[in-house]
Amino acid sequence: MKIAVAGKGGVGKTTVSGTLARALARSGHQVLALDGDVNPMLGISLGVGPEETDRLVAARQALDGGRLGHEPTAAGLVDKFGTDAPDGVRLVVVSRIDEADPG
C-alpha cells in the first residue's frame, strides 16, 4: 500500500500521516514515511522530537552538496538518508528549504 496525504495548510496532513504511519507499523507493516514538504515537520508527529526533526538532513540537499556519494537505488537512499522513528517506522526527508534563493 502506498499512501499520499494531501490538502491545504493547517488541515492536519502531517499529524494524520505520522499517526497513520505508526498505526500501520504497529499492526505489522513495514513502513517508510516520506516527508515531501520543503518545510519538513513529519518527524514531530512521528515522535522524533522537535529539535531532532529540525536537524534532519534532506536527501536532496545531501546529494546536491556532495556530502555523500551518489546513491542510485531507492533502497540505498532510504538506507543512507533515513532516520529511525518510533514503532520501527523509517523516516526520509526528501527536500528542505533553509536559505534564500535555493535555486
Partner: peptide, 11 residues
C-alpha cells in the same frame, strides 16, 4: 504568502 518558507525564499 503561501504556507511555509518557499515563497519567502524565492522573493
Amino acid at each position: 504568502l503561501s504556507a511555509g518558507p518557499r515563497q519567502s525564499a524565492y522573493r
